[in-house]
């Protein structure tokens, strides 16, 4: 009887924790939604989503997120443009070309990179990369979009490399051997057969990489200069969605429109990453099949 009781309690706990996971996602969404709706009751939704000015403390305030979305979009596009080709190339090298011992070393180094806290990279951006960019392009300040782009590209590399490498490694050997059988060189087999076969895993890697970059907070807050204006060039200071929340939450008065506007920004971020992850999962499932 005692045994049955333990069993019942444990199984209930196990089911409960599964239920809690679902609850967390719903709660995160609901709490963001609840506070966002408090903004939209007094501030038109359209002005929020299409407004071109983010001036939370002027009178009257203006909560247009276009400058922030553009800021996020520009650094993300820049970072992805750099890190996707580099990441996929490195994944190819690690998965298919590097000899065993080198492979282990390279993979451990990538793990080290993945574990460096973002605030440390942000700090490096301030003391080293920022001044470097400033001197290189003769700018007034090195705290600009481009500095963020470099660091974000660097940070997204582990995500892109690890997932692409998995995708490359899971391409059946037979494919390559068939290509060799037809007289292809190793490179031709990689380029024409293995890479296309791994394409949906690589797509997933790119999606998750984008999610990683869009969601990154500390680095962009520390190095991109935080000017909430619509950026026209990566050499200007700009401001992302994440940095806005992190930078202004401390000053926003609890229950003010500004406070709720920051939750609305959080909701936008939540929806963007939700879609990215959902799509990535679709791609990944296709690879597994």
């Amino acid at each position: 009887m005692n045994r049955k009781w333990t069993e019942t309690v444990i199984e209930a706990a196990i089911r409960l924790s599964g239920f809690l996971l679902i609850a967390f996602v719903f709660l995160i969404f609901l709490f963001l939604l609840k506070d966002s709706l408090s903004l939209f009751r007094v501030y038109p939704f359209f002005d929020f989503i299409a407004g071109t000015k983010w001036l939370p403390i002027s009178e009257p305030p203006s909560f247009g997120i276009v400058p922030l979305v553009m800021g996020s979009f520009m650094v993300t596009a820049g970072a992805i443009a750099i890190c996707v080709p580099i990441g996929v190339a490195a994944a190819l090298y690690i998965a298919e070309i590097a000899p065993g011992f080198l492979k282990t070393i390279l993979k451990s180094l990538i793990e080290v990179l993945a574990s460096i806290p973002s605030v440390v990279l942000g700090f490096i951006g301030i003391v080293w990369l920022g001044p470097f960019v400033k001197n290189l392009f003769h700018l007034r300040t090195g705290m600009c979009g481009l500095t963020g782009v470099f660091l974000l590209a660097f940070m997204a590399l582990p995500t892109i490399i690890t997932i692409s490498e998995d995708a490359l490694a899971s391409v059946p050997r037979m494919y390559k051997e068939a290509a060799y059988g037809l007289g292809a060189t190793k490179w031709q087999a990689l380029w024409r057969i293995v890479l296309p076969a791994a394409s949906s895993g690589i797509m997933a890697a790119i999606m998750l990489g984008i999610g990683r970059v869009i969601g990154e907070t500390m680095v962009v807050m520390m190095v991109t200069g935080n000017a909430p204006v619509i950026p026209t060039s990566l050499l200007q200071p700009l401001r992302t969605l994440t940095a806005t929340i992190a930078g202004e939450m401390g000053e926003a008065v609890s229950g003010s429109d500004h406070y709720y506007a920051l939750f609305a920004v959080g909701l936008v971020l939540f929806i963007i990453t939700f879609i990215l992850n959902f799509t990535a999962e679709r791609f990944l499932r296709r690879t597994r099949r």
């Binding site: 967390f24 995160i28 709490f31 990154e216 994440t242 992190a246 920051l262 939750f263 939700f274």
Partner: peptide
């Protein structure tokens, strides 16, 4: 989805 939510959104939540 939990794995993809930005850390700052966790902070807000």
């Amino acid at each position: 989805n939990l794995s993809g939510i930005p850390s700052i959104v966790y902070g807000l939540f």
